[in-house]
Structures are given as C-alpha cells and as structure tokens.
Design a protein around this nucleic acid. Structure first.
Length: 426
RNA sequence: GGAGGGAUGGCUGAGUGGUCGAAAGCGGCGGUCUUGAAAACCGUUGUGGGGCCUUGCCUCACCGGGGGUUCGAAUCCCUCUCCCUCCGCCA
C-alpha cells in the first residue's frame, strides 16, 4: 500500500513508476486523487453535523426543566439519520479508495533499469563457469528416476500433476539442504530462526501484499476461510502486525523454513518436466525489518547472504537486477540469483531478494518509534525478503552439477554432516 | 463438543446511559534536589482522520471486531472473534 500523501504531493512520481512498470491502468492515479477529494469533502460535512450533535447532547444533559428538555430532544431527532447517510457515503468512498490503492504496486527505486519484461533484466555479475563434462550431462528427471530418489507417478497418483514423491537419499538431500541453510542463516549470518503456521488468515496474506491481487494463485480452505502460505514471507511479514517497536531493537532478522503452496496457473506445457515448478515446494526464507534509512544496505547484505549459500554449495551462479517491467508488486528493487543447471542447460532462478520499503509495513501496520520521548510519532519501518534458496531448484542444480558418468551424484561437502554417511548417491 | 467467566491506554485495574479519551497505580519521558545515582517531589505521557491564521489550535472517530437502540453508548441489545476455568473427546 502506498501512502495517500504520495499521491497528493508527488502524483508524477507515482505515474512515472506505474508507466515504467507497464502497469495496465495508469489512470488509477487520477482516480485515487478524485476519490480522495470526495472523501475529504464528505468527511468535512459529516463531522460538522457530528460536532453539532455532540454540542446539542451536551446541552440537553444540562437542562433541568423536563418540558424544555423534551423540546430540545425533539429538535435533535432526525439529525442522526442525516449523519448515518453521510457516514454510509464516506464508507463507500473509502472502500472504493482502499480497493483501488491495494491494487497499485510499490513505487520503484530510481536505480531500477527500464525494461519491458524478464528478457531485459540486467546480469550484474556471474560467479564461476558453467561446468564442463567429459560426457553428456543428464537432466535431473532422468537422474532422479534412475536412482529411484524422485517418483513422479506417485505424486500424480496421490494428488495430480506437478506433484512428486522424494525417496531415500533424495528426501534426505532436501532435508540436509534445509538444515544447512537454516544453520548458515542463523549461526553465521545473524538471522533468528522462526517456525510459523503454514495456514493463515486472509488479513495476513493481505498484509504481505498477496491479496487481493494474487488470489488466484493461492490455495484456500473455504470452510475456515484460511489460506495456505505461498511463501514464508507471508507469515513473517505479519509477525509484528499492529505493533510499535523500539528503534533500538531493530533490525529484526528472521529465517524460516516452510513449504510453499501455489496454484501456479501458468501455461499448461511450461516447465512440466521435473521438479522445477510444482504446486508444493519447500523454501528457506530470509526476512528483515529495518529502519527506513537502512533498507538499501540491508538489501545488499541479504543478496550477499543468498550468494554465500550458492557459493558454499559450489554452484555456478549469476546475479540479475530486475528491470522495471519485472519487479514484483510489493518491491521497490529486486535481485534474482540464478544457478546453472547443466542437464537442462539453463539458468534456474533460486532466489529473489527484494526491498519492499514501507509498502508491506503500511499494509500490516508495523511501526517503530525513533525515541521514547513524549510526542515522538510512530513511523512505518521497512521490510525485505529473500529466498535463502528455493529447494527444488537447488536440488536440481546439485543433482545436475554433481552427477558422474555412471549416473551417481556426489554429495557436496557442506551437506554431508546431515547425510548419514552418504557421500555419493548411487 | 457441553457448561460457565472474561476482553478498557505500554502494563495492572476502576467505570452510575449525559463535560469519560476515560479514575488510580506502575512503567516511560522531562525537570527539581544530588559530586553522580537512587529515593522523594513536580510536570508530562495513546492512535488515526479532517480543517485552519500549520510546530500550535480546533474538530471527528477509536474502551476486542461488526451491527443495533438512543437527542446522547465504554456503559443497554444482537452477532462474531479471541482468552480463562470445568467436563467430554483426541494425535
């Protein structure tokens, strides 16, 4: 959610950002201003009548003479209905304004390069070289099925397409990755480990900016009106909802493992093979709450933390800065990290690190106070999120990069602690 | 699932349908005192919206959420949510 004052004071900033994003309804800015001015004139009118009513009520309470009192009360009859009618109009305008505002994306950071879509994202660095093999490297779906560690048929049997079952060393490899990442984030990178509910209320999803806009991508339990989390970012954003925290206690840094559930209504034939794009996948997430002036640095820090994860796993990766047409709804600026998958012969997005500024904090109402002195006003803090790597794609990269000519897979050194003596999956 | 009890400011906790945005205490902040600190004392201390002769003042709303009764609601009614106690069931 953007600050209404931004529309009042700098409408051109918002217009320019929407244009750069290729936002479908750029006229939304004018509609916001129109509703805002309607709201204010209705409020002025309603409040004038309320002040009148309050004064009259106060006067009535002072009147001793019964007849005089009754006369004054009779005089006031009907005022309530006028007020109620105006209040109803205010409610309507506010609901319209809210609906409109909640669908307008965050204003981009000035440093975001202009571009139409993901084809114009800018590679800012590449670390390592795509690995060369003395044999033809296989895609992970071949490796996984022949080793018996990924079973696609069973996933379809249990649930449907885009689900799978991991077995034996495959399931264990994923568990090792989760443990490795959580330990890295919490013991060496300064995050605090969190375990959150995987099913949350609509207002929690709204706070993180996924509702109302991305309703179609969410799994929902109609009976209880609850949503399955599409990412840990959703519960983590709302951990401090409606709180005012001390500036001195910031930043808050969290790392959480959760499964993620997404309908992923993408084109039917896209990414169907393998475990690249499922309706359920696991992820370890990093999340920070910072002072406004510190979020730019925090974004770089989190990007480095995600890079470190790739580097320690010995994966070749590259960092992209997303162009204006591809930055997500809540974000001001985003880096994607992609790892090289030699079997599929493509770069896989394993992490996306974003600075959301105060956009989510405003929705979730998370604030801080700069000092404890009386009169110090609460301000919205900034939120950032980053994948500490999506697990299926990290699995793909490990399987394809560490494969050997005989179809076996070497377990990367940092994961062996959790592999129960398995150094090579065969 | 059944039966009761509750939800008030950062916290504890009063509150008769009418100067109640709300007593009191604690805490926070500022000050006096002190070499300094503590204690004591004094003052101050919620959030959001709107207006203006815009750093101060006026005004509206907010006592778990929503709705209603009334000239007027923290207070009365309905409803939802959450919490507590007891019984039952249960991984």
């Amino acid at each position: 959610m953007l600050d209404i004052n931004l529309f009042r004071n700098q409408p051109d900033t918002v217009r320019a950002s929407l244009k750069a994003r290729r936002f479908a309804e750029p006229q939304a800015v004018d509609r916001v201003l129109e509703l805002d001015s309607q709201r204010r004139s209705l409020l002025t009118e309603a409040e004038k009548l309320k002040a009148e009513r309050n004064a009259a009520s106060k006067a009535i309470s002072q009147i001793k003479d019964a007849a005089e009192k009754q006369a004054k009360i009779a005089e006031q009859k009907g005022l309530g209905e006028k007020i109620a009618a105006l209040d109803e109009q205010v409610r309507q305008v506010e609901a319209d304004l809210e609906a409109l505002l909640s669908g307008i994306p965050n204003v981009l950071d000035a440093r975001v390069p202009d571009g139409e879509d993901d084809a114009q994202n800018v590679v800012i660095k590449t670390v390592g070289e795509p690995k060369q093999f003395p044999f033809e490297p296989k895609p992970h779906w071949d490796l996984g099925t022949s080793l018996g560690i990924i079973n696609f048929e069973q996933g379809v049997k249990l649930t449907g397409s885009r689900f799978y079952v991991l077995h034996g060393a495959g399931a264990r490899l994923q568990r090792a990755l989760i443990a490795f990442m959580l330990d890295l984030h919490t013991r060496r990178q300064g995050y605090s480990e969190a375990y959150t509910p995987f099913i949350v209320k609509g207002e929690t999803v709204y706070g993180a900016g996924q509702l109302p806009k991305f309703k179609d991508n969410l799994y929902r339990d109609a009976e209880e009106d609850l949503y399955m989390v599409p990412t840990a970012e959703v519960p983590l954003t709302c951990i401090h909802r409606d709180e005012i925290v001390d500036a001195a206690s910031l930043p808050f840094r969290y790392s959480a493992y959760t499964p993620c559930f997404r309908r992923e209504k993408v084109a039917a034939g896209r990414d169907v093979r393998g475990i690249k794009r499922g309706h359920q996948f696991d992820k370890v997430e990093m999340y920070s709450f910072t002072l406004p002036e510190e979020s730019d640095n925090e974004l770089e820090r989190m990007r480095e933390d995600a890079e470190q994860t790739c580097a320690e796993l010995g994966l070749t990766y590259r960092v992209k800065q997303l162009c204006s047409g591809d930055v997500g709804f809540c974000a001001r600026m985003t880096y994607d990290i992609e790892v090289w998958a030699p079997g599929q012969n493509e770069w896989l997005e394993v992490s996306s690190v974003s600075n959301c500024g105060d956009f989510q904090a405003r929705r979730a109402n998370v604030r801080f106070r700069r000092s404890r002195e009386a009169g110090a006003k609460p301000e919205f803090l900034h939120t950032l999120n980053g994948s500490g790597l999506g697990l299926p794609r990290t699995m793909i990269a490990i399987m394809e990069n560490y494969q050997q000519a005989d179809g076996s897979i070497v377990v990367p050194e940092p994961l062996r602690l959790w592999m129960g003596g398995i150094d090579v999956i065969r």
